[in-house]
Measured scan of single mutants.
Amino acid sequence: GIDPFTGEAIAKFNFNGDTQVEMSFRKGERITLLRQVDENWYEGRIPGTSRQGIFPITYVDVIKRPL
């Protein structure tokens, strides 16, 4: 089901994660935001896939912030 505490964002740019914990994505992908890790990073996942990880806040347009 849908978790009411998650947020939502759209990727503004392609992001290629450097490490296992970073999640790569392509511009235009819809991302579920799980939490804000710190002032620069979100943790999120791509709905319908097993992809999950952290990524820079500046790479996405936030539609709804996670609670």
Rank of each mutant, 00 (worst) to 15 (best):
61 D>K: 14
6 T>I: 11
39 E>V: 10
54 I>V: 10
16 N>M: 12
58 T>D: 13
63 I>P: 05
39 E>Q: 10
23 M>K: 00
36 Q>P: 07
42 Y>M: 11
4 P>G: 13
10 I>M: 07
56 P>H: 04
55 F>M: 02
43 E>I: 08
58 T>V: 12
56 P>Y: 02
34 L>Y: 06
49 T>I: 02
23 M>S: 01
31 I>C: 02
35 R>E: 04
60 V>H: 00
59 Y>Q: 06
3 D>W: 12
14 N>R: 06
21 V>D: 14
54 I>D: 01
32 T>K: 08
33 L>H: 04
62 V>Q: 04
5 F>H: 15
12 K>F: 04
15 F>R: 04
32 T>R: 08
18 D>F: 13
16 N>Q: 12
47 P>K: 10
49 T>P: 02
25 F>Y: 01
54 I>R: 09
18 D>Q: 15
42 Y>N: 01
20 Q>P: 14
13 F>D: 10
44 G>T: 01
12 K>S: 06
9 A>K: 02
47 P>D: 14
38 D>Y: 09
42 Y>E: 01
26 R>I: 13
24 S>H: 05
6 T>H: 14
64 K>M: 07
40 N>T: 13
7 G>K: 09
27 K>I: 12
9 A>V: 06
20 Q>I: 14
20 Q>T: 12
30 R>S: 07
28 G>C: 08
22 E>D: 05
5 F>S: 11
15 F>C: 02
55 F>K: 00
21 V>A: 14
23 M>C: 03
48 G>N: 10
23 M>A: 02
4 P>L: 14
7 G>D: 09
41 W>G: 02
7 G>A: 07
45 R>Y: 13
49 T>G: 06
48 G>L: 07
1 G>C: 15
49 T>H: 03
63 I>K: 06
37 V>Q: 04
28 G>A: 04
31 I>S: 00
51 R>D: 02
23 M>L: 15
46 I>N: 01
14 N>K: 05
35 R>L: 06
53 G>N: 01
42 Y>L: 10
66 P>V: 06
13 F>M: 13
33 L>E: 04
24 S>K: 05
8 E>N: 07
66 P>H: 07
54 I>C: 09
13 F>K: 11
60 V>D: 00
18 D>L: 15
50 S>R: 11
17 G>H: 03
29 E>G: 01
3 D>F: 11
4 P>H: 14
16 N>D: 14
48 G>H: 09
53 G>R: 00
4 P>W: 15
57 I>C: 11
64 K>F: 07
66 P>W: 03
14 N>A: 08
51 R>T: 03
4 P>C: 15
19 T>P: 06
43 E>G: 03
6 T>R: 09
25 F>E: 00
65 R>F: 15
55 F>I: 09
6 T>S: 11
61 D>P: 00
22 E>Q: 13
46 I>P: 01
5 F>W: 15
9 A>G: 10
17 G>E: 03
47 P>V: 11
57 I>K: 11
43 E>D: 06
55 F>N: 00
12 K>R: 11
25 F>L: 06
8 E>P: 05
2 I>F: 13
8 E>M: 13
6 T>G: 09
60 V>T: 03
12 K>P: 01
4 P>A: 14
64 K>S: 06
29 E>A: 04
36 Q>N: 05
47 P>F: 10
15 F>Q: 00
28 G>P: 01
43 E>W: 13
38 D>T: 08
39 E>D: 13
38 D>Q: 06
63 I>L: 10
19 T>A: 11
39 E>Y: 09
45 R>A: 10
2 I>M: 13
12 K>V: 09
